[in-house]
Design a protein around this nucleic acid. Structure first.
Lengths: 145, 145
DNA sequence: TTACATGCAAACTCTTTGCCACCAG
DNA sequence: CTGGTGGCAAAGAGTTTGCATGTAA
């Protein structure tokens, strides 16, 4: 894997935030340092960095992929209102699940836990609580930089 | 919500399998009973049935949505080789995660646990073990009917 | 009768890819 | 040198939507 400025900027962008950014977010941020970087390059580098194990790819909600520079074992809380994803420090004990999976003759490689909820900013103070799909829809627009 | 033949067929298709089908799969199956049903109708009904709480939408892998007719609390094992999703009967105790989320001032609504691994059919007996991305790619093609 | 649902196709979002110039090693 | 990489734009996959017609209640 060659060491280019584009790749370095993409990696730093993912590592620079706890917000589990989308490719779009990384692109916008990378463009501040390399104004003519292309979205394709961002995608290519995110994919390669994930394959190389330098970042992690997470599937939060059904929308865009998100990326995570935190490689340690941890889980996520996702706000169904704004789509934000935060880390959860508590290490979950999944031994029973893994045992069950093995009992089904699965070779266990990993696991992912996501708690869904409403963050303080999205909690209904009024009646505008988003429905599940509307919430998911508005997620990208409100992604806090 | 009006009671149409299309909706009934879509619901029955999701309930008819433990395979956590994709919209494509439901479409192909529904077409056996209603040959000119359209993909748009399948999507619309899956969405409405999920909103009505009659089925559940799950995000397995980063690819297509999958749907689940099993409404009870349970978790999933996903094969990173073929994309298949199976139920895991063991009820996971996520009280600590939920407590942690609440401590972050999140209103907890739900949670989802996915164990990733290789199913018997995809386990490397030879050297053709799929890479993470190739595995995800081939998932749809091999979706067992 | 009429509001909701369907079929169809076009539109949209997110992601990947082909091509050729370019540059790190 | 030269093969990996970048920029660009077009293509792909999956999903949603506008519109005219059809139909459940």
């Amino acid at each position: 894997m060659r060491n280019t400025r584009q790749r370095e900027v993409v990696l730093e962008a993912v590592r620079a935030t706890m917000e589990h950014p989308t490719a779009e977010w990384v692109f916008r941020r990378a463009r501040r340092r390399i104004p003519n970087i292309s979205l394709g390059t961002v995608y290519r580098n995110l994919k390669q960095l994930a394959e190389a194990g330098l970042i992690r790819e997470i599937q939060a909600g059904s929308q865009a992929l998100r990326f995570d520079g935190n490689l340690g074992p941890h889980h996520h809380v996702r706000c169904v209102g704004c789509g934000r994803v935060n880390d959860l420090e508590v290490p979950l004990d999944t031994r029973r699940e893994q045992a069950a999976a093995r009992a089904m003759d699965f070779q266990v490689l990993g696991h992912h836990v996501e708690v869904q909820g409403l963050c303080p900013a999205c909690r209904p103070g009024r009646a505008d609580r988003p429905t599940s799909s509307e919430g998911a829809m508005s997620a990208r627009q409100r992604t806090h930089e």
